[in-house]
């Protein structure tokens, strides 16, 4: 009989200890950790891997980023301008495909050319709207018909290196 009451006491006391902790957090506003998200937004720290951004004016069209991307999220097409410099006429990043791994950013040889912005809210109604277009877009009519894929662009880049 004594054992029965002892067990009962033990059960009730451990449950009350647990409840005590819960109540302590419930009534103390200092312990609050929830952020009221859409109203209060959190500033991501330095180096946060958000949406990718390309400064297309300093991009050399070397295609290093497109070649390293493990999921082929970057589509690049380059042409030579009148000074024989490679220019990226098409530079699309598919944000729905990108896995934000950062390999492209590390591969880019130009400082502050390809980097992550701190943006993390960019939902869209259609899949196409998730593609960011950075390309210069000055395609000559003859070339615009063929849709160059990353591999072809990569070949061109290699030729340029030679």
């Amino acid at each position: 009989m004594a054992g029965y009451f002892k067990k009962m006491y033990h059960s009730i006391s451990t449950v009350l200890t647990g409840l005590g902790i819960t109540i302590k957090y419930g009534i103390n506003p200092k312990t609050e950790v929830t952020q009221q998200y859409p109203e209060v937004k959190r500033e991501p720290p330095e180096g946060f891997r958000g949406k990718l951004f390309v400064d297309i004016n300093i991009c050399t069209g070397c295609t290093a980023c497109a070649r390293i991307c493990p999921v082929d999220a970057i589509t690049l097409k380059t042409v030579r301008d009148e000074n024989k410099k490679l220019r990226p006429v098409l530079f699309d990043i598919d944000n729905a495909r990108c896995i934000y791994c950062g390999l492209c950013v590390e591969a880019c040889p130009v400082d502050n050319c390809l980097y992550f912005e701190k943006k993390y809210e960019f939902s869209a109604y259609s899949k196409e709207d998730l593609i960011s277009h950075f390309g210069l877009g000055e395609v000559k009519p003859a070339e615009s018909k063929t849709e160059d894929k990353k591999t072809e662009a990569g070949k061109e880049g290699k030729e340029a290196a030679q």
Binding site: P45, E46, G47, R49, Y100, C101, G102, F116
Partner: peptide
């Protein structure tokens, strides 16, 4: 996660 985020920029898939 905050610690990892300041170290590498991601909160789940760190790489």
């Amino acid at each position: 996660n905050d610690l990892f985020e300041i170290a590498c920029g991601a909160r789940l898939t760190y790489n």
